[in-house]
Amino acid sequence: MILSPAERSYLYDSLAKDELIRPDARADYQFRPIEVKTSFLPSSNGSARVRLTDGSEIITSIKSKVVLAAEEKSLIECDIDIPGFRDDSNFVANLKYNMTSLLNKSFPFESLKLTSKYAFKLFIDCVVISYSSFPLTFISIACYLALKSTKLPKLISDVNDEETAEQPLFSDDWENAQYLGDLNDSKSFNPPLIIVIGVVGKNLLFDPSAEEEQVLENGIIISWYNNDISTPIHNLNFSVHSNMPNYKGLSQQMIMKSILMARKHCANIVKALDQAIEEQTDDGVIF
């Protein structure tokens, strides 16, 4: 939806104020409310659905495959599908690149290893059913939820197959499948997240809505993993459909400020997501 110049200027002014006012009365670090559902796709190892009140919806599925570790460049492959966009369009390619670098950088790959030769490869497929603002955060949230609820089959054949090749054999009981988190040696397993931040004047806004995006001066994405900032971190032009007429350069202070903001609030986001997973009813119905 296109804003008139008057609206735009009004919005910009209210966002650029010291005590900023967001149209939906959110604080600068607040995300929009989301509805979360996991493990509803029976044929996938893990699945998640994220829905916003404005109708944006993202479904993510994680499927595993046994591969020879030596033959694979990466044990995680991320694919994003947005209806209406070609797979090689800038928009989609950009999103895919960000997600892929995020995951390849910050993921406990040892938990995917099976034997000395074989490992699990995870295929993460995101389908963006509909979106209003730049969907990267929600895509990463959906991936986070899906990864947390992913179960992998349990290996029962010999782990050591250096000398004699053995085809890996798995327990045929799905109940024996283990959560990705449990396969990891460390106590907690929190997949990485990407936070999308809008820059207006001296203010930073977490999760800018579609209207807010139109008046932003710039955008920053920051990754969060293991309770601290991680890469990729870079700035981005969020709007796809309309130009950001206010587009300006980014000062390093804003970058530092965004890092501080992230450090302050991201832990809560993770906590909220974890809680959302637990509070779900286990009925597998999505509507």
Binding site: P42, S43, S44, N45, S64, K65, V66, Y118, F120, L152, P153, Q167, P168, L169, F170, S171, D172, D173, W174, A177
Partner: peptide, 14 residues
Amino acid sequence: VFVSSKNGGATKIV
């Protein structure tokens, strides 16, 4: 729901 180990893979069958 069960896991099929055919061909060395671990396919979840529902």
